[in-house]
């Protein structure tokens, strides 16, 4: 049985981050914003997924979804930590997570939509995983070595997530009439939020030029092809082209994010001097 001392002994130290390369002010500002985007996408989505804990439709799926949630929040931790170092104002990943206001979050709207039922969760996850895997695949060859390394690591988990969500899209689409209807409705509702990730603005355009970060608009065609193929295999209709909602990348979110953040941030904000 462990003594108090044994229980409190420090864990192995995390790997010390390497020195950052020198960036021009313009690149530094853009890179900070970009890293927030990568981190926030996963933080918010991971948070939504974690709402399933204890409420999953099957115990095995509860565990599986929990795994994905853990991975995503772990990715967020890494991207936000790097963002903080790039910004250079001593904000670590917790500071960025718990003390930024809604207008400073840079996730796509797709991430912040409510948890929904299992069909909605799987459909949203599949759309995100398809994008994430493509993005990380390209990002691992960017010219910022630390970010490239992070992308390579993240890609492994993204690949597994995609396998999981794709398999469930197949089972729900080509399962019963009820499951088919539910997951079709989910894709129909989500479609208008699926385009935001592929819009390139001045941030990505500058970083594509300076650091070889992938231009997200270049990913769209492949994404459409892969997603359509899987939906068809699942006997689902690919929703028609429609107006795509944007704004998340500029901190203009849906009304859902504010409430999510109010819940997520309440404890540290209530005790601003405390450490946890």
């Amino acid at each position: 049985m462990e003594s108090p001392e044994e229980m409190l002994s420090p864990r192995a130290a995390t790997i010390a981050p390497s020195e950052l390369p020198t960036f021009s002010p313009a690149v530094r500002t853009a890179l900070f914003d970009y890293l927030l985007r990568l981190g926030d996408d996963r933080l918010i989505l991971g948070h939504r997924l974690s709402e399933w804990c204890g409420h999953g439709p099957i115990l095995e799926e509860d565990l599986a979804i929990g795994n994905v949630s853990l991975d995503l929040i772990g990715h967020a931790q890494a991207f936000l930590a790097l963002a903080g170092r790039v910004e250079g104002k001593e904000r670590d990943e917790d500071r960025l997570t718990f003390f930024r206001g809604e207008r400073e979050f840079r996730n796509i709207k797709l991430s912040e939509l409510p948890r929904g039922d299992f069909a909605f969760t799987i459909a949203r996850q599949f759309l995100f995983d398809s994008y994430a895997a493509l993005l990380m695949e390209k990002l691992q060859s960017c010219r910022f070595p630390e970010l490239a390394g992070l992308a390579a690591k993240t890609l492994k988990e993204d690949t597994y997530h995609l396998r999981h969500s794709a398999q469930w899209v197949l089972r729900l689409g080509d399962g019963t009439l009820e499951s088919h209807a539910k997951v079709q409705a989910a894709f129909n509702d989500l479609w208008a939020y699926s385009g935001e990730a592929f819009v390139a603005d001045e941030v990505e355009l500058l970083l594509a030029k300076e650091l070889g970060i992938p231009d997200p608009s270049s990913l769209k065609a492949v994404w459409v092809e892969r997603v359509s193929a899987l939906l068809k295999e699942a006997t689902l209709q690919v929703p028609a082209d429609c107006f795509m909602h944007t704004g998340g990348r500029k901190g203009l979110h849906t009304e859902y994010l504010g409430k999510l953040l109010a819940e997520m941030q309440i404890v540290p904000r209530s005790y601003p001097d405390a450490r946890w």
Binding site: I58, E60, H164
Partner: peptide, 20 residues
């Protein structure tokens, strides 16, 4: 053991339950 409807899901469940 795990419960699963087919081999693919069984493999994923086994990985999530026993190989964490």
């Amino acid at each position: 053991s795990v419960h699963a409807p087919d081999g693919e899901i069984a493999l994923q469940n086994a990985r999530d339950v026993y190989a964490r």
